[in-house]
Write a protein that binds this DNA or RNA. Structure first.
Lengths: 343, 343
DNA sequence: TTGAAAGCGCTAACAC
DNA sequence: GTGTTAGCGCTTTCAA
């Protein structure tokens, strides 16, 4: 039905010129209140929505952002929480009248072919801004290509690829609660990430003069059986951790279960933090706290910044493109408490 | 650098008119081989990529598909494997020169507001086709809105919302392997899905004359402790299931662990199938088979069909929009075997 | 087989 | 403040 309504129709209905309609939808101050009112009324009456394609052609702004990521090797699980990015990103973009497009660079693709693919997309879609997702954020050739076209760029660094260290932060937080006997159980999908977190954890304990990292560390992801045994062997003795950091959500649940069987109350006798979230952690008894890098928020922030740059007519494409600091988020849940007085 | 190359530049370089260039990129047969060759050479030489916006305006085809989904209520995990859809969808679309856009309808949004939001997006982006993702696939008002604009539509039905019943299929498969004592442990995020699977499972067992569904069924998702107990209580006795279906991946791992402690060999003494995949299932010993509805494939198929309809100049928007049958995929892994002779 | 003309719907300059 | 004039880069007629 509504197909075919143009700015012309709106202009006629409001008895103004197309330009005035254009000024209204572009928030130009140079429109009289009366005209503006008539135009807005006509717009809603007709249900008109300006065509992105037309605006793109005429205005030189596509109101479109492009997020580029590296596709997973076949069978490999994707390292990126794409759904979170999509959710957070589209929400921000849509709110500002922008669209967000995702572009997948084939996993095993050569540098040259990848550049070509991106170049093609840039040419076709003419995005107003591009976000390079890890591990592409470090590809300077892609960055150069983008900025060479005069397009704004942001690079997203997230957990594991990032300066922020969840292992360190978790240990720090627990130490702040008075804990000294803090354990760590690896379980990240990527061993490199585990090493990174582990190093951070060790740093904190060393700084606090604790030697728990000598006794209470599992460097490799345990399966269910191993995790059960491990937790039992740590928690049954009198000298035991008062807090445990687990990289995987599953292991956190195992620890919780073992604690329960040993009559250890969480969080009174044992604090628990996972470095990975999962719905199950929120519904366990008690729910288990999580410290992780929320990918959605920084991504949304990157989108916002790109849009702001365009809106501000700021023609500073190759300006700042600092990688976002990977901020960590602590989901406080009932599994955290101050350390018991003496241990 | 390359910014500003237009069809005009290519035409000049190839010593033809713009039309000829246009014909070449649109695969018109009415171009001489020589002209075509010159044009193609010029295109690659200049690195020209036709502007989507311009093509959209002039041609009436945006080469853009829109996937609409319902956003998750805050805190709620998304019911849709968005990343899989994104991966599979963009791959198919990009291969055909199309783009795929995702639109999120606010979760608690009213029907009217949802329609308005979709209408706005349809007007702005002018997609060539729209895919309604569950649970939006059943919203006839949205379907009508889309087709009213002359836009092709597909609706995707996936697991749980779909005719295909993973519980039934899993039971059927195990029965085909000779199993009669087949157990079922619920664990889907959505209880309605569990009910659905459970019903299917019961149907199969009843048809086979088995009464296992009287003894070996857990209707509510057990937590870790409950799952351990449950598995032990079922597997320790002489009369026990020879196969177990678990809805959650985590529970499958628990069962595997218990079986190991009881010296039951999987799959010799016990077959195992999960209705949810997870990387951990692939790396357990033995790896655990999965039967699930892969969302990516049917979604990609829907994209393909929408594109094909456009390419075929088939102006049959309100034509067939049959919901895709939710196909199930069995990932055969070493956890499946024929039932032991006697039990 | 090819080219010329005429837009698609909107915005950027300019006038008024 | 408002209208007018040109296009943006491509495809669609229609002629040749």
């Amino acid at each position: 039905m509504g197909r075919g309504i143009t700015i012309e129709d709106v202009a006629r209905a409001a008895a103004v010129s197309r330009q005035t309609v254009s000024r209204v939808i572009n928030h130009s101050p140079r429109v009289s209140p009366e005209a503006r009112a008539r135009v807005e009324e006509a717009i809603t009456a007709l249900g008109w929505v300006p065509s992105l394609a037309a605006r793109s052609m005429a205005g030189g702004r596509s109101r479109m952002l492009l997020a580029v990521f590296q596709g997973p090797a076949s069978g490999t699980p994707l390292a990126l929480p794409l759904d979170q990015l999509l959710l957070a990103g589209t929400a921000v973009c849509n709110a500002q009248g922008y669209r967000l497009l995702f572009e997948q660079l084939a996993p095993g693709i050569t540098a040259a072919a990848g550049t070509a693919q991106l170049a093609a997309t840039l040419g076709a879609a003419e995005p107003d801004g591009v976000i390079l997702l890890p591990p592409l954020d470090s590809r300077s050739d892609l960055g150069a290509l983008i900025e060479g076209r005069g397009i704004a760029r942001e690079s997203l660094a997230i957990a594991g690829h990032a300066p922020a260290n969840a292992g360190e932060a978790a240990a720090q937080h627990l130490a702040g609660l008075g804990h000294r006997q803090i354990a760590f159980i690896a379980g990240a999908a990527d061993p490199a990430v585990s090493q990174f977190n582990l190093a951070g954890y060790r740093r904190v304990l060393a700084a606090k003069g604790s030697r728990a990292h000598g006794h209470f560390v599992a460097e490799t992801p345990p399966d269910l059986g191993a995790a059960l045994e491990l937790a039992r062997s740590w928690l049954a003795p009198t000298i035991r951790p008062t807090a445990i950091i687990t990289e995987s959500a599953a292991t956190a649940l195992v620890v919780l279960h073992v604690a329960a069987t040993l009559k250890l109350a969480v969080p009174r006798d044992l604090s628990l933090v996972a470095l990975e979230d999962s719905p199950a952690l929120g519904s366990s008894r008690p729910p288990i706290a999580v410290l992780h890098a929320p990918a959605g928020a920084p991504f949304a922030a990157a989108c916002k910044r790109l849009i702001a740059r365009k809106e501000a007519r700021g023609e500073s494409p190759s300006a700042e493109h600092a990688a976002l600091p990977a901020t960590l988020e602590l989901i406080e849940r009932a599994s955290l408490a101050r350390a018991p007085r003496a241990i």
